[in-house]
Amino acid sequence: MEILIESLPRFIGATWLTLQITALSVFIGFCMALPLSVLRVSRSPLLSWPVYAFTFYFRGTPLLVQIFLIYYGSGQFVAQLEAVGLWYFFQNPWFCAVLALTLNTAAYSTEIFRGGIQGVPFGEIEAARACGMSGALLYRRIILPRALRVVWPAYTNEVIFLLQASSLVSIITVMDITGVAGEIATRSFAFYEVYLFAAALYIVIVYGVLWVFRRIESRLNTHLQAEAL
């Protein structure tokens, strides 16, 4: 018990790091997934196939392999990466962790958004077309807002998954919650106390994030609630 109280400041720092890595990956992944999902539903196979290959690879392989491929695998291309000045980034485990998590969540989110885009009733698109909207305007005003509302619960699950998956970065020496717990546990031999504490910490964060996303969901659907009254 004293060990836990002693190491509380380290856990606070680690919690911040876990949240930071997750939030950054979710944000960049979201920004990547929106255009990618639009390309994914494109009628041109030249546009949709590369995106499908990307999502298929990143959804079909374990995140741990992806992290190792980027962090350790880049070591096989030191000369080439140095030549283009990128080796500095790939040496850094924090960078590799964020890169792997971002690509992973981008792949899953792309497929989630694709489902949403395809789920938009065709009448709405026709109506927008009849109003003279097309292309980017149609997507921005009608399809994407509508799709986002439909997929929000599924997207919430993806964010929760990513938050938990961020624990894997501890394997490449990033000191997130799991990383700090592992270090303290091996030093103090208080394995179950420390890991139970880490587990409790994750539960609090997970259900906290879940609560925030539910709030956003009800915000997104305010117009529907008003109708129900």
């Binding site: 799991t178 546990a185 890991y195 587990a199 994750y202 259900y207």
Partner: peptide, 16 residues
């Protein structure tokens, strides 16, 4: 469903 798999694996393997 609220705890990462990795933490549970470490908890069981080292903690139990």
């Amino acid at each position: 469903r609220g705890v990462p798999e990795l933490v549970l694996i470490l908890l069981v393997y080292y903690g139990v």
